[in-house]
Amino acid sequence: MPLGTLYLIPAPLGDVPLEYFLPAEAKRIVSTLQHFVVEHPKTARLYLKQLEIATPLQQLQMSELNEHTPANAVPDLLKPLMAGHHVGLLSEAGCPAIADPGALLVRHAHAKGIRVKPLVGPSSILLALMASGANGQRFSFQGYLPADPANRARALKELEKRSAQQDEAIAFIETPYRNNQLLEAIQSQCRSSTLLCVASNLNTDDETIISLPIGSWPKPNPNLHKIPTVFVLYAKP
Score class of each variant (00 low, 15 high):
residue 112 K to W: 05
residue 48 L to T: 13
residue 225 H to R: 14
residue 207 E to C: 01
residue 151 N to I: 02
residue 125 I to T: 12
residue 182 L to E: 00
residue 75 P to C: 09
residue 227 I to L: 15
residue 16 V to M: 05
residue 185 A to P: 04
residue 32 T to C: 13
residue 48 L to R: 12
residue 95 C to F: 03
residue 105 L to G: 02
residue 79 K to V: 14
residue 237 P to Y: 02
residue 26 A to Y: 07
residue 115 R to D: 07
residue 197 C to K: 07
residue 24 A to D: 13
residue 117 K to T: 14
residue 147 A to L: 12
residue 219 K to S: 08
residue 233 L to A: 02
residue 150 A to S: 11
residue 177 Y to T: 11
residue 124 S to V: 11
residue 123 S to R: 04
residue 63 S to C: 06
residue 213 P to H: 10
residue 107 R to I: 06
residue 176 P to E: 00
residue 208 T to F: 04
residue 79 K to R: 09
residue 84 G to M: 07
residue 223 N to C: 05
residue 169 A to D: 04
residue 188 S to R: 14
residue 237 P to W: 00
residue 161 K to T: 07
residue 28 R to W: 10
residue 54 A to C: 11
residue 8 L to Y: 04
residue 137 Q to N: 15
residue 11 A to K: 08
residue 80 P to Q: 06
residue 75 P to F: 05
residue 56 P to M: 01
residue 71 A to C: 06
residue 59 Q to E: 13
residue 3 L to W: 08
residue 187 Q to H: 11
residue 9 I to G: 03
residue 9 I to W: 02
residue 225 H to K: 15
residue 14 G to W: 10
residue 19 E to T: 15
residue 164 A to M: 08
residue 175 T to N: 15
residue 152 R to A: 03
residue 25 E to K: 12
residue 176 P to N: 09
residue 104 L to K: 14
residue 224 L to S: 05
residue 184 E to C: 13
residue 149 P to H: 10
residue 170 I to Q: 01
residue 125 I to M: 09
residue 10 P to A: 11
residue 91 S to D: 14
residue 215 G to S: 06
residue 98 I to M: 02
residue 129 L to E: 09
residue 49 K to A: 12
